[in-house]
Amino acid sequence: MSRMSASTRRILQAATGLAITAALLLGCQAVVYVHNPDALWQIVSQSCVPSDAAGKGPGKCAKVSPDGYALLKDIRGQGQYLLIPTARVAGMESPALSQPGAPDYFLDAWENRDFVSKALDAHVPDALMSLAINSAKGRSQNQLHIHIDCMSQAMRNALSAYDDAAPGTWVDARLNNHFYRLMRVASATAKRVHPYDRVLKQAEAQGQAIGDHAIFMATAPGGFFVVDGYYQARGQNANPGSAEELQDHSCKDVGK
């Protein structure tokens, strides 16, 4: 084995120092998330659910619901939460989501949106609240999770260009310089929105795999927007399949 040069040793020492600093700043969970695609599932199944069942509270989670989901504070952003099924559900591509009587995880996520306001210690109006789930190719974790967080006023303004879209009709949209399809759903509550079912029908009609789609949900005049992002690897304005890009994890416009 050749002897390591002094300059190489200094570089490695500096890199190690940066890695340790990053771990201290972001917390050990951040490192686990990056290198372990099953991290979210392991947290929920090994910490949250067993602790709650033993009457010790929700463990690392903020909530474990008897309806089959847990809420976990995300390591990114001050207010972002993740809704995660307590059953093993890989993601958008999971057949369990399209079975009769399948849980409406989007409805569950929307009904728990106040957790974001509590984390920020500031009210997030529904007009700046959003939900997002990434495609199989646009995510880092192999357990379904819905991002519950703010969106920027700029994104709200971009969506407002489609306020007059006919309810129940898909229209082409460009958001964050990427191609999306968008539907305005006329509904007084989130109970009739059913984002997954609507995007599944859209995917099947186009002969596309549902796992290649991402979903974003936000309020619209008289209802909600369901935004469908289909993963495209190439082409100008191609979609990365990560609807999370439409959120603002800094929540910079809250309270303005």
Score class of each variant (00 low, 15 high):
residue 1 M to C: 11
residue 3 R to I: 14
residue 3 R to E: 12
residue 4 M to E: 14
residue 5 S to K: 11
residue 6 A to V: 07
residue 6 A to S: 08
residue 7 S to P: 00
residue 9 R to A: 14
residue 10 R to M: 14
residue 18 L to Y: 08
residue 20 I to S: 01
residue 22 A to H: 04
residue 22 A to G: 01
residue 23 A to I: 08
residue 32 V to M: 00
residue 34 V to Q: 07
residue 36 N to Q: 10
residue 37 P to S: 06
residue 38 D to P: 03
residue 40 L to R: 01
residue 40 L to E: 00
residue 42 Q to K: 14
residue 42 Q to V: 10
residue 46 Q to C: 04
residue 46 Q to H: 06
residue 47 S to Y: 03
residue 47 S to G: 07
residue 47 S to N: 11
residue 49 V to P: 04
residue 50 P to W: 09
residue 53 A to R: 15
residue 58 P to C: 12
residue 59 G to E: 00
residue 59 G to Y: 00
residue 61 C to I: 06
residue 67 D to S: 12
residue 68 G to D: 05
residue 70 A to K: 03
residue 72 L to D: 01
residue 73 K to I: 07
residue 76 R to N: 13
residue 81 Y to N: 09
residue 82 L to T: 03
residue 85 P to D: 06
residue 87 A to V: 12
residue 88 R to S: 11
residue 89 V to S: 02
residue 90 A to S: 13
residue 95 P to T: 07
residue 95 P to A: 07
residue 96 A to Y: 04
residue 97 L to D: 00
residue 98 S to K: 08
residue 100 P to F: 12
residue 101 G to N: 04
residue 101 G to P: 01
residue 101 G to Y: 03
residue 102 A to T: 03
residue 105 Y to L: 07
residue 106 F to N: 04
residue 107 L to S: 12
residue 110 W to A: 15
residue 111 E to V: 08
residue 112 N to S: 13
residue 115 F to N: 04
residue 116 V to S: 05
residue 117 S to G: 07
residue 117 S to W: 06
residue 118 K to A: 14
residue 118 K to E: 13
residue 119 A to Y: 03
residue 121 D to N: 10
residue 122 A to N: 11
residue 132 A to C: 07
residue 137 K to C: 01
residue 137 K to F: 06
residue 138 G to N: 01
residue 146 I to N: 00
residue 147 H to N: 09
residue 147 H to C: 06
residue 149 D to S: 15
residue 152 S to F: 06
residue 154 A to E: 11
residue 156 R to T: 04
residue 158 A to D: 15
residue 158 A to T: 06
residue 159 L to C: 02
residue 167 P to W: 02
residue 168 G to Q: 09
residue 169 T to E: 12
residue 169 T to W: 04
residue 169 T to Y: 06
residue 169 T to K: 03
residue 171 V to Q: 11
residue 172 D to V: 15
residue 175 L to F: 09
residue 177 N to A: 13
residue 180 Y to T: 02
residue 182 L to Q: 04
residue 184 R to E: 03
residue 188 A to S: 13
residue 188 A to D: 13
residue 192 R to F: 11
residue 192 R to N: 14
residue 198 R to A: 08
residue 200 L to Q: 08
residue 205 A to D: 15
residue 207 G to V: 14
residue 207 G to T: 12
residue 208 Q to G: 02
residue 209 A to H: 13
residue 210 I to K: 00
residue 212 D to V: 11
residue 214 A to V: 10
residue 215 I to G: 01
residue 215 I to P: 00
residue 216 F to E: 00
residue 217 M to K: 04
residue 217 M to A: 09
residue 218 A to I: 09
residue 219 T to Q: 11
residue 220 A to L: 13
residue 222 G to D: 01
residue 224 F to G: 05
residue 224 F to D: 02
residue 225 F to G: 02
residue 225 F to H: 01
residue 229 G to E: 08
residue 229 G to W: 01
residue 231 Y to V: 04
residue 231 Y to H: 05
residue 232 Q to C: 08
residue 232 Q to S: 12
residue 232 Q to I: 05
residue 233 A to P: 00
residue 233 A to M: 13
residue 235 G to E: 13
residue 237 N to D: 15
residue 238 A to V: 09
residue 239 N to W: 08
residue 240 P to L: 12
residue 244 E to R: 08
residue 248 D to Y: 06
residue 248 D to R: 02
residue 249 H to I: 09
residue 250 S to H: 11
residue 250 S to D: 14
residue 250 S to N: 09
residue 253 D to N: 10
residue 253 D to V: 07
residue 255 G to I: 15
